[in-house]
Design a protein around this nucleic acid. Structure first.
Length: 340
DNA sequence: TTCATTTGACCAAG
DNA sequence: CTTGGTCAAATGAA
C-alpha cells in the first residue's frame, strides 16, 4: 500500500517535472517567453490536472492507510507552531469538508497563523499588505474568542472578493489565525508604495476590547518582522497557485502570487522535523531554478514522513513529506515580500 | 460629511 | 434547530 502512495507521488513528481520543462524549456532554447502560446498553455493545464489527481490519490491512500489520520493531522498542525492552537479544529473540519462535501469550493482558501510579538515595539498589527474592512464579528461555538470577518476594502470599487477571518488563538493569545478566502483582484495602492499606510489595518484590534486586550495600538511603522507567519493551504489549488503555475495573466492580477512570479523571493521553507518545529534556514528559491530531480521520494526505504533535505549548489531547501499527510504546505513569507 | 466599526438580525447549510 | 457567515442600521472617528 505504501508503495502505491509513493508511486502516485513519483508520478506526480514526474508530471511536475514535465510541467516545469514545458514552462521553462523555452528559456534554454532562447525563444519566446514561457506559456506564450495557447496550446502549451492547455498542455500545462492538462499536466496540472494530472498532478493534482496524483496528489489527491496519494492523499486518499494515506488517509486510508492511516486510520487515525485526522487525529494525526490535528497533532501535526499543533506541532507546527510549538503552541497548540484551536487551528486544529478549523483545519480538521475543513479537511472533512474537502473530502466529504463536494460543494462550493470556488474560492481558494488558506490559513495563516500570525504570531504577534508583544514585546517588540512594532507589534500589534495584522498587517498583511492589504486593506481590509470589518463587516462582522461572531462568537464561535466552543471558541473563547470571537471571530472577526473582514473583506477587502476595494470590494465595491474594484469588485475584489477577497475576505479573511481573524480569530485569536485560545492557547496562545499572541497567535491569530487568519483564514483567507479568495485572492485579491484589486489594485492596492498600499502595495505599490508602502503597505503600512492602510488605516483599516492599523486600526485592527483597537476597538475590539475582547480580541485585543493586550495589543497596543500602533501609530505608524508596522514591520512584518514582528510577526511570524505560518501558512497552510486548505485546498490543492493553493499549493500550485502560490508557486504560480498559473499563467502570467493570472499572476498579473496583483496578488501575493504575483510577487512570486516576478521576483526572486527569499522564502523560508519550514521543516517539520520530527514534529518538533525546527525550521530551515532562509533560502533563495525560484521556480525556474527548482531542481525536480532533487525531490526524491526514495525507492524503497524510509517512512513517507522522513525528511528530505538536499543541499544544492543553487538552492538549499528542505521539504517535509508530512505535507502530504496533513495536506498543508507551510511557508514563511519573509518580511521583505511586503517591501516589494 | 465620509468612511470604518459595531452589533443584532437575517439567511443558508447541515 | 443550530451554527457560521453576511447584511445593514446605528454609532463613532477623522
Amino acid at each position: 500500500m505504501e508503495e502505491n502512495i509513493k508511486c502516485e507521488l513519483r508520478q506526480g513528481k514526474e508530471l511536475a517535472k514535465q510541467l516545469h520543462g514545458q514552462i521553462f524549456s523555452s528559456s534554454s532554447s532562447s525563444t519566446s517567453s514561457p506559456s506564450s502560446n495557447s496550446s502549451s498553455h492547455e498542455a500545462n493545464e492538462v499536466l496540472i490536472d494530472k498532478i493534482l489527481l496524483s496528489i489527491e490519490k496519494a492523499i486518499t491512500m494515506v488517509k486510508d492507510n492511516v486510520g487515525n489520520f485526522e487525529t494525526k493531522n490535528v497533532n501535526l498542525i499543533g506541532s507546527h507552531c510549538s503552541h497548540g492552537s484551536p487551528k486544529s479544529e478549523v483545519q480538521d473540519s475543513e479537511f472533512k469538508h474537502k473530502h466529504v462535501s463536494k460543494k462550493r469550493k470556488t474560492m481558494p482558501k488558506w490559513t495563516e497563523q500570525v504570531k504577534v510579538y508583544l514585546g517588540t515595539s512594532s507589534e500589534g498589527s495584522m498587517e498583511d499588505g492589504y486593506s481590509w474592512r470589518k463587516y462582522g464579528q461572531k462568537d464561535i461555538l466552543g471558541a473563547k474568542f470571537p471571530r472577526g470577518y473582514y473583506r477587502c476594502t476595494h470590494r465595491n470599487a474594484q469588485g475584489c472578493l477577497a475576505t479573511k477571518q481573524v480569530q485569536k488563538s485560545e492557547e496562545d493569545p499572541m497567535i491569530y489565525e487568519i483564514t483567507y478566502k479568495g485572492r485579491h483582484t484589486c489594485i492596492q495602492s498600499s502595495h505599490l508604495n508602502k503597505p503600512h499606510s492602510s488605516k483599516s489595518n492599523l486600526k485592527f484590534g483597537q476597538n475590539n476590547s475582547q480580541l485585543n486586550q493586550q495589543i497596543q495600538p500602533q501609530e505608524e511603522k508596522i514591520q512584518p518582522t514582528s510577526q511570524e507567519k505560518i501558512s497552510t493551504f486548505d485546498n490543492k489549488e493553493d499549493i500550485f497557485s502560490s508557486f504560480n503555475f498559473s499563467s502570467p495573466s493570472i499572476g498579473s492580477q496583483n496578488g501575493d502570487t504575483n510577487i512570486f512570479l516576478e521576483t526572486s523571493v527569499e522564502n523560508k521553507f519550514m521543516v517539520n522535523e520530527n514534529n518538533n518545529n525546527i525550521f530551515s534556514e532562509s533560502n533563495v528559491f525560484t521556480l525556474s531554478q527548482f531542481d525536480w530531480e532533487s525531490i526524491d521520494l526514495g525507492p524503497s526505504e524510509s517512512d513517507i514522513s522522513d525528511i528530505i533535505s538536499y543541499p544544492n549548489s543553487v538552492i538549499d531547501y528542505s521539504i517535509d513529506l508530512d505535507i502530504f499527510n496533513n495536506f498543508n504546505f507551510d511557508m514563511d513569507f519573509s518580511s521583505n515580500i511586503y517591501e516589494l
